[in-house]
Amino acid sequence: MAYLELNNISKTYGQGDHATEVLSNINLSIEEGEFVAIVGFTGSGKTTLVNLINGLLEPTSGEVLFKGKPVSGTSHERGVIFQNYSLLPWLTVEQNVLMAVKEAFPKREKAVYKRKAAHYIDMVGLTPAINKLPRELSGGMRQRVAVARALSMKPDMIIMDEPLGALDALTRGTLQDQILNIWGKDKRTALLITNDVDEGIYMADRIIPLKPGPRATLGPEFNIDIERPRDKTEMNDNESYKKTRNAIIEYLMDIGNERKSEATEEYELPDLTPKDFVYQFK
């Protein structure tokens, strides 16, 4: 049985005439230890999908199964890394991580918590900034705190909602490597939501495009069989990489064009001729 299973999920916002079906007929299964990426355009319902999986939202129909049990509400077993970091601005780096540790492992000694928090902060290389407030950190550093916070709960699965979306290309690259490094250590199941095809190919075992909403649904999946650890420069010359990349991009472009042509409607324009103002000033 799959580790995470989504069966015929659909999600509708609003009711009656105002109802919008954001996700429709989503089927997905992720095996233990697998790294899956979902790529999609902005506004295609990616965040809704993530919130269904982590338990912040409930599906209108269908079911989400995690380790064979239906998901109801959030759980420490599924760690979430949000798109906009969502660090509490009044707590320091350490306090932000400590809060998660304390909730995930209740009734331990203070020193144990401190050690655990320090361990995860060290893992993302933020030990020198341990007593800083989020606003004193750069975007990349903040996201690393969010990574440390999610990992510190020792989740069985990590769900990342466009974690690197707001970062510059260089920081993105480093953080991708860091996340892969941490993932490679204990091979936890991971789900990455992204809008960057290259990022998906570089990081994941499997890429699934999300057809844009309303009524978004998952497209055909692409397996990436490039050996890990992957090297960005070498990958550019890898034939299978090129093929997969082109296939995904073509697929996404096609949906994009389809969507555009759907939106094209013929408007009848009024028959007007511009007035000539020039002669007035002669």
Binding site: L56, G79, V80, F82, N84, S86, L88, M99
Partner: peptide, 19 residues
């Protein structure tokens, strides 16, 4: 976002209000 964090971390009501 903060409410979502509180939910994901599964903070209790008391903790949620004060933290």
């Amino acid at each position: 976002d903060y409410i979502n964090v509180a939910k994901v971390l599964k903070l209790g009501t008391f903790q949620k209000i004060f933290k």
